[in-house]
């Protein structure tokens, strides 16, 4: 049974969130793998001349159960999130957190080196750092 009245939600915060999500929706560029936003885990991707860094916001997961793969320039993060089951006599008032299996896919730039990968899980965030190929890195040419 769902009772939502015990903790009235912050209406203004909810409206702000809706507004933000709508604005984000307009920034969306069509992706061949469908709508990328709103999935679990949320992902941020960034890069430096030396590496491509992917941050997956996946709290409460045993890192040993995460499956991270790079194949043909595509990074896949998959796993399952199991939540504590409420007891028989318990009532669920709010149920917003993601539970179940997930899989997210990120297309990597062409110049990454799939053998130079480093993955760390800290504070519920999986950080995957993929090095770029040496040949693709900017080099200063000295003029003699």
């Amino acid at each position: 049974m769902m009772y939502r009245s015990l903790f009235p939600r912050d209406v203004l915060a909810e409206l702000n969130r809706l507004q933000r999500e709508m604005q984000q929706g307009f920034h969306l560029s069509p992706n061949i793998r469908g709508i990328a936003r709103g999935g679990f885990p949320a992902m941020n991707v960034g890069g430096t001349p030396q590496s491509v860094d992917v941050y997956a916001f996946a709290p409460g997961i045993d890192p040993a159960t995460l499956d991270v793969q790079i194949e043909k320039g595509v990074l896949t993060v998959a796993g399952e999130r199991k939540l504590e089951q409420p007891g028989e006599d318990a009532t669920v008032h709010i149920d917003e957190r993601f539970a179940g299996r997930f899989r997210r896919v990120v297309t990597l730039p062409d110049d990454v080196d799939p053998s130079a990968v480093d993955a760390k899980y800290r504070d519920g965030v999986l950080r995957i750092s993929i090095g770029r190929k040496q040949s693709a890195q900017p080099r200063r040419i000295t003029i003699e």
Binding site: L6, A13, L83, E84, V92
Partner: peptide
């Protein structure tokens, strides 16, 4: 300041309320 609304689960039983909140990236 703009802030993210963390998803939560709220479960009640006879002894009290348990709240779980997802706050990924927070030390």
């Amino acid at each position: 300041e703009a802030a993210l609304l963390p998803p939560v689960d709220v479960i009640e039983n006879a002894s009290g309320i348990t709240l779980y909140a997802d706050l990924a990236g927070v030390p």
